[in-house]
């Protein structure tokens, strides 16, 4: 290609008036070996552009984003259900005691439950019965008193 045509193109190029086709032509021209000395400056410029067209993105794309979201929502829902469950079971226990409309029935129920309480209490006192064993222990200790009596008698005799 004649260098005056190239010079004209370069003039246009500097003013950003070249078309893409003309720019391709320039790139091709400067990729060739023999370029007049006064146009040497453009050579590395176009070579650089050309070299940079080839760089590629090689990193892998992690695209599995959806499943993670589903798991997140499931765990959040589970947590909410657990919390609600605890809340409702507690409040039921503390509030619903049951009522009676008929006073006689209520009286019967009360005596029944009081009887149950006393029965349980008696069971408790029955186990306390082991304390009797302690009393037995102290009773045997009384034999020591007998011993003392005997020694006292002896000492009294000596004094006389």
């Amino acid at each position: 290609m004649e260098s005056n045509k190239i010079e004209a193109l370069l003039e246009k190029y500097d003013h950003a008036e070249t078309t893409l086709a003309e720019e391709r032509e320039l790139k091709r021209y400067f990729a060739e070996a023999d370029v007049p000395a006064h146009l040497d400056v453009y050579k590395p410029m176009f070579a650089y552009f050309k070299a940079n067209e080839e760089e590629v993105f090689t990193k892998k794309l992690p695209l599995k984003t959806e499943q993670k979201y589903v798991l997140k929502w499931i765990s959040a829902a589970a947590a909410v259900v657990l919390l609600l469950g605890f809340y409702f079971s507690r409040s039921n226990e503390s509030q619903d005691l049951g009522t009676f409309d008929d006073p006689e029935l209520a009286y019967l129920e009360v005596t029944k439950s009081l009887e149950m309480i006393s029965e349980k209490l008696n069971q408790g006192t029955a186990t306390v019965g082991y304390l009797d064993e302690v009393n037995k222990g102290t009773a045997t200790l009384n034999y020591l008193n007998e011993l003392e009596n005997a020694t006292q008698i002896i000492f009294k005799k000596q004094k006389q």
């Binding site: 190029y13 500097d14 003013h15 950003a16 008036e17 400056v41 453009y42 410029m45």
Partner: peptide
């Protein structure tokens, strides 16, 4: 275009 022209001239 103006910015491009400026950039090209600077590089050259």
């Amino acid at each position: 275009r103006v910015a491009l022209s400026r950039a090209r001239k600077t590089i050259r």
